[in-house]
Design a protein around this nucleic acid. Structure first.
Lengths: 169, 169
DNA sequence: GCAAATTAATGATTTATTCAAG
DNA sequence: CTTGAATAAATCATTAATTTGC
């Protein structure tokens, strides 16, 4: 897991000693590091039911989160992807654990310490949540805005995307 | 998990019952249909070694292909994705076939008519092409162009991306 | 108490799989 | 059946926690 050629990156251990509150601006950071407020908003949206925001939603979220720090649209996109995937991963693991606890007779393989349980391929304990087929729509940059009068399909999910706490969908 | 009545797909199966041709906005076709010239250029680029163009490259390709018909950046992106994937798929299949031909004793399962051969997981006949690790860079809309002096680190594949028949290396 | 070494989280990319239009 | 479009899974890579030796 940890191959470290020991490359002391750029703006690393600047803080800690110096309690300077400077936010390390100017280009430096390669990877987006979400601030607590940003995470809060994102999780709120997620708990509100948002799974894969489309481009318009992403734009709005990005704009909103931009108040709390530098952020791009792709960060939002990736955040939702990863969050969803890892949530599912956790649930799957929990389900397996529950199963093994409830029924301690089966469970042939899948040593819990190895790495995972990559036995079949997928669809292991999948038939419990996602029943809906697929939802289409992606988050591509539809901003080309040249000639083609291609309808920017938004409008659909806009209503259930308040961005301000409204209470459930 | 999917507790949200997300956008009921919009232009997907919209015109099924209602055979009304309306609603389809000005740009009729939902799906991009590449013209022969476009395919030609794309295949040339592919044969030239391009696998996953970055945003700048995609923009340029899109611009070039736009001469031969309506096209968006995501079309180019998806085309490369699909072409690569399906090329690999074919190679894999061919390799399996070759193996079974050379050694007609093994090959336990993988009925060729069922659906596929989803036996293990992956890494079956993989170690034949991709030796380079990974290349980074995606095709996101990096067009924010605000202040951040974020280096748009293309440069990786740019050299082998002439876009104009140059004679190649 | 600290910084290097390790580990755990998680952002970012690529690959595999699936859906559906033509 | 072919293939564009979209999503989910796997993987890589980097940053933050945490541990460990001094």
């Amino acid at each position: 897991m940890s191959a470290l050629p020991d490359h002391f990156s750029r703006a690393r251990n600047a803080s800690k000693l110096l309690n300077c509150t400077v936010q390390v601006p100017t280009a430096g950071t390669t990877r987006w590091n979400p601030s607590p407020e940003q995470i809060k908003v994102l999780e709120m949206l997620y708990r509100g039911g948002m799974r894969t925001p489309n481009s318009v939603q992403i734009e709005r979220i990005t704009e909103e989160l931009g108040k709390y720090g530098r952020i791009e649209g792709k960060n939002v996109f990736y955040w939702f992807q990863n969050h969803k995937a890892r949530e599912r991963q956790k649930q799957k693991r929990a389900a397996l654990l529950t199963l093994s606890t409830l029924d301690s007779s089966s469970l042939p393989a899948a040593a819990p310490g190895t790495k995972e349980g990559p036995e079949k391929k997928k669809e292991e304990t999948e038939g419990l949540t996602t029943s809906c087929k697929r939802r289409c729509k992606a988050a591509w940059g539809d901003h080309h805005g040249d000639d083609a009068a291609d309808c920017t399909d938004d409008v659909t999910t806009l209503e259930l995307f308040p961005l301000r706490p409204q209470g459930k969908a």
